[in-house]
Design a binder for these strands. Structure first.
Length: 280
DNA sequence: TTGCACGAGTATAGATTGCC
DNA sequence: GGCAATCTATACTCGTGCAA
């Protein structure tokens, strides 16, 4: 068995507000049954398995992974991952964030509900290795090179994950429909965070009033109602886990568990505790 | 596509109660 | 005692109509 080892190189001069920011990269040879989580992150973290096996758990789903597979952890998503007991995995990771990254993930067909890319090319592993070295050296050009490597990795994931054809944003849909989808994805990515519609509008480059109207027209419900619907769906899943109501409230963007309980009852018709008991 | 105004609805905080 | 739910008051945000 290999000796457990883990190294990480972080960006030497991280800056806020970039469309795409590569934050750190590293690699690990884990111990048998080595486990991370349950936890939540504030950036996107992708692991690509070099060899060995392990399990990734997210949104009430378990994924078995092996060599060549990549799994994506989205910001605010409660998750765990654990090495196999007999063949603990060895993997490389890259952490990044920014609206550009969100767009690439969508185009590659990678979402919190489909957080895997099975097998495929070795480019992501080479990218993670290169970025780790770049950040260790700390040269001022590291930003450019790291972004370039991440682009190559995304191209590889997209080739593996998506059937041939135009990217989703170019398939003949209206601009309003595409923008409503963008807004919906933004809201989905913020399920665990207290956010406002004004904040969303600002980040997507539209006026609050206009975006609200556009969203309501395309989706048949207001952005706030959509956000609540998604949060309650998530809450129902999390209530099947051994988490307190307070933890479920926090994981669904409610700072106040009391208010969460009240909202849950209004949506579902029973309190979180009653819902949990009914599912047993 | 933006900005304003306004009513309606939502979020929050604190106090209290009930259950295990 | 700890956790969860309820009630109330208040502040804030949202959705919508309208004008530009």
């Amino acid at each position: 068995m290999r000796k457990p080892v883990s190294t990480t190189s972080v960006h030497p001069r991280p800056r806020e507000g970039q469309p795409l920011a590569v934050l750190f990269a590293g690699h690990s040879q884990t111990e048998p049954l080595h486990r991370m989580g349950p936890q939540k992150l504030d950036s996107i973290l992708v692991h690509t398995v070099i060899d060995g096996k392990g399990t990734y758990r997210c949104r009430d789903s378990d994924y078995e992974l092996g060599a060549g597979d990549s799994f994506f952890i989205f910001p605010g998503e409660l998750h765990t991952y654990q090495a196999d007991g007999e063949q603990p995995w060895r993997y490389r990771w890259i952490a990044f964030r920014g609206p550009e990254a969100d767009r690439w993930l969508l185009m590659a067909g990678i979402t919190p509900d489909r957080p895997l890319v099975r097998g495929g090319e070795d480019v992501p592993l080479r990218a993670a290795s290169a970025i780790e070295k770049l950040f260790r050296i700390g040269d001022w050009t590291a930003d450019w090179e790291a972004e370039g490597w991440l682009r190559l990795a995304f191209a590889a994931w997209a080739r593996t994950n998506r059937p041939k054809g135009p990217p989703p944003s170019e398939s003949g849909r209206s601009v309003a429909s595409i923008e409503a989808d963008r807004a919906a994805r933004w809201l989905q990515a913020q399920l665990a965070n207290p956010v406002s519609i004004a904040q969303m509008a600002k980040e997507l480059g539209y006026h609050r009033t206009y975006l609200t109207k556009l969203f309501s027209r395309e989706r048949g419900m207001s952005p706030v109602r959509y956000l609540q619907q998604q949060r309650m769906g998530r809450a129902k899943l999390l209530l099947k886990e051994p988490l307190t109501v307070e933890e479920v409230a926090a994981a669904t963007g409610y700072g106040d568990p009391l208010y969460f309980s009240k909202s849950f009852k209004r949506w579902v018709g029973c309190t979180p505790t009653e819902y949990r008991q009914s599912q047993r």
